[in-house]
Amino acid sequence: MPRTWQELFVTGEAAAATAPQEEPQERRRGFFRRLRENLSKTRQALGAELQASVFQRLDDETFERLEEMLIYADVGAPATARIVERLETEAAGGTLASGEDLTRRLTELLAEAARTGEATIDLRHDPTVILMVGVNGTGKTTTIGKIAWHLQKELGKSVLLAAGDTFRAAAVEQLEAWAERAGSDIVKAAPGSDPGAVAFDAISAARARGHDVVIIDTAGRLHTQDHLMDELAKVRRVIAKQMPEAPHETLLTIDATTGQNGLRQALLFRETVDVTGIVLTKLDGTAKGGIALAIAQELGVPVKLIGIGEALEDLRPFDPDDFARAIIEV
């Protein structure tokens, strides 16, 4: 699984050309610590539970409380039931003997549940088109800004942003501020104009000016609003008309505080625009983001990036093992 930006994005170039082959160990640890800190509440809750279970038998009560913990993390009833059932079976079969065993297996199962599908993002197209979609307020524009910054500054890619959110007041201004920070170009249109046209123009502009990556912002929309989802499908069709195999990547932002509705969001966005990855945002609160596990398990859509804070470096490639460990280890 990718752990660094260099690993997440497949550039087809010798990685050393633009960035060090491997991230300094210290920084890796820094990330892990940061995520762990940010997930501390979950860790404390689960950790306390699991630590206690070391001294107890693996009885019904332990499993019942384990189930509660997963529900609290927004993993959802079906995914929770599946994990708990599996652990119960293994305990009954004698492979789990202690609370420590339980901790270890739980970590493995959580990571396994999160690990699905294609984990990397291929940038070897000319240009690579990334479409960003999601419900209102989940952090699309901010995520785009941060991705652009990383691509420009760390991978040496030239990025063009398309201000496709022509609906929300001041959305274009917000993206412009990010474009300036990242040093990216931006294509925009008048408020209320057709987002498909913005996407179309952006791709032709990127071709003309030789940009490597085009990231297309779209207005936040609830997955239940059929007319807005139709509009999004149209944006996608227009992109494909301009460049047949595009968009190469369609990322859906999911707010980590989202509950079971996140599953519906992922389902309906996938139906409409064929989502290829999730960006799990706002993991730095007390929310646990367990809905990402449910989405990975139920729909097979992998998490590719996580947002663990406001700073630029707080947008990170997702690592299921780190994620599971950070949730569980004390």
Binding site: Y72, D74, G259
Partner: peptide
């Protein structure tokens, strides 16, 4: 947000 999960209480 009406879509908030278990964290709403915290």
């Amino acid at each position: 947000d009406a879509m908030t999960g278990q964290d709403a209480v915290n």
